[in-house]
Design a protein around this nucleic acid. Sequence first.
DNA 1: CAGGCGAATGTAATCGATTACGATACTGAT
DNA 2: ATCAGTATCGTAATCGATTACATTCGCCTG
Lengths: 332, 332
Amino acid sequence: MSDVARRAGVSTATVSRALSGPASSVRGETRDRVLRAVEEIGYVPDRLARNLRRRSAQIFALVVSDIGNPFFTAVARGFEDGARAADHSVIIADTDEIPAVESRRLLELVAEGVAGIVLASTGTTSEGLEQAVRARIPVVALDRRIDAGFDTVACDGARGAAEAVGALIAAGRRRIALIGGPEAISSMADRRDGYERALREHGIAVDPELVVHGDMREASGHDATAALLASARPPGAVFVANNLMAMGALRAIFASGRRIPDDLAIACFDDFAASELIPPGIAAVAQPTYRLGAGAAELLVRRIAEPGAPVREIVLPGRLIERPSIGLARAA
Amino acid sequence: MSDVARRAGVSTATVSRALSGPASSVRGETRDRVLRAVEEIGYVPDRLARNLRRRSAQIFALVVSDIGNPFFTAVARGFEDGARAADHSVIIADTDEIPAVESRRLLELVAEGVAGIVLASTGTTSEGLEQAVRARIPVVALDRRIDAGFDTVACDGARGAAEAVGALIAAGRRRIALIGGPEAISSMADRRDGYERALREHGIAVDPELVVHGDMREASGHDATAALLASARPPGAVFVANNLMAMGALRAIFASGRRIPDDLAIACFDDFAASELIPPGIAAVAQPTYRLGAGAAELLVRRIAEPGAPVREIVLPGRLIERPSIGLARAA
DNA sequence: CAGGCGAATGTAATCGATTACGATACTGAT
DNA sequence: ATCAGTATCGTAATCGATTACATTCGCCTG
């Protein structure tokens, strides 16, 4: 940096101001001289030194339960692009949906000096979250609301679920089971709400026996479905609250020898790569994953620019992709 | 840090040595005093300052073509665990399989001061790679070899492919097509080799008309398969060199109305989540993804410990998961 | 014309840990 | 008793960019 300063005939302070200070802090001509010197020498500012001075690294963190879940990887794609546009790298951390792990990861990220965190929380407030707030690191809630006043980006789970369940009803099913997720996770609670709302709107009572909860992983979807199918009065359709459990549900259904949609209709939240290829084609509510991720990055960037701004919430609609697993096509 | 020093009655230099210096550099009793003081005060070393001094951040980078590919996310999982065990975070960067993007990402990572890079290269040496080497940042090749002498971790593609193709032959197929990837990518070339070897070993000539190349993405798998099926003498089986193209191939096959395995047998490299659910169950060579990722982390850690050590190569076997898509079961 | 103000820039302190260099004390050998 | 050698620890420089504070200069006002 001092080489640049010498070459441009200014001090290092001026070089710094020309490169990263506000536009008004340096005379136009001086700035040009500095930029030319930078160009000639091929100077690249040292990020590590800058990080120390600024007390923050140019890194955003994405904290999710499992990077193996295609929903989160798709979100990560959008988030990464958004972060890169703001000249930030992305660290990804898994929590395995375990609150203690989530807290630990957050503490590590705070220590790491990340500039912002996007968090798909397990639902429990933790010491890690507290520390992040105390360190004034912006936190954006992804997919799941956090009680306090955090910026949030999510898909409209209630509406998407209601639409999917509505489609099942329109196809003539009335005994529709829900395979839901933990109620502490707001997106899961929302989807349950949508399920119940759709039933009520069509004058169908919610049957507690048809509502079961998994842990959002494949195995739990399988087990829950198997139990439903083995019960005295099995349902005529199931709505599964996320993609992984849906895969488990499908395994259980095929294992039972039932045919979709004749014996059992199915729809789920969260589209997945193979949904078309699994016969007869599985209906799903597709989330705008890329835009969720990009939106999260955007919220972080804005919050950094104006820390005091009012809390913002981005809620994007999902889109029901109707496929034959629903059963009869709806009347147009 | 000076608080700790004062409390322990030593200098900051001693604190630093006690915490991160070699064991011999400080008297046992002194170290204990320091550690106690650290405990009492709740001191946490500042990573940003340490990074500046050490001229390197405690971060590993994973550079892949597309984090949306489940193979890479599965690898990422193992890599992340391995990195964390060594107290490093993980940055993930996508290249979209574009050499220029790969080079740019690498340059950014070098500037970022990452401590090590795991790279699934597009196959072209780039300025970014040069810079990484010049900066003495260890680079481990993942899945795909890089010409020069880099540590490498990969699955045995030739053997896995030969096994899968061998199974198709054992099931009575002789006209077996290959949907391969770009030859510049070593893992793809290996799989092609395995394909050809299996054919030769069974006295079947390699028919150039049955060998087509995609770009490893789903659409190319679809198009290549559609073209094969529409040809004058369509194959009796296909072996697809990766998971994404396999999904595309399946779409094309179903669209053509053909039945698996009666009309067309299929097997692919890289197992994927839905392979069981897609009828009749799609045979695939499963890679030990988690261990590939963990192995990459391990290679990085060792290379950092001994920069001069001889080049190491970890090659892990894949496992053919036989499913009905192959056709007749092999004679036991 | 004095005094005040703002724009533009320079000087040097600062972020917090690491480490080169030097000082001290203690060991054992001669 | 003297001295080399080693183990242990302290002082202060260092990493490279940012920024508080000081300085200079020009311009405007009363």
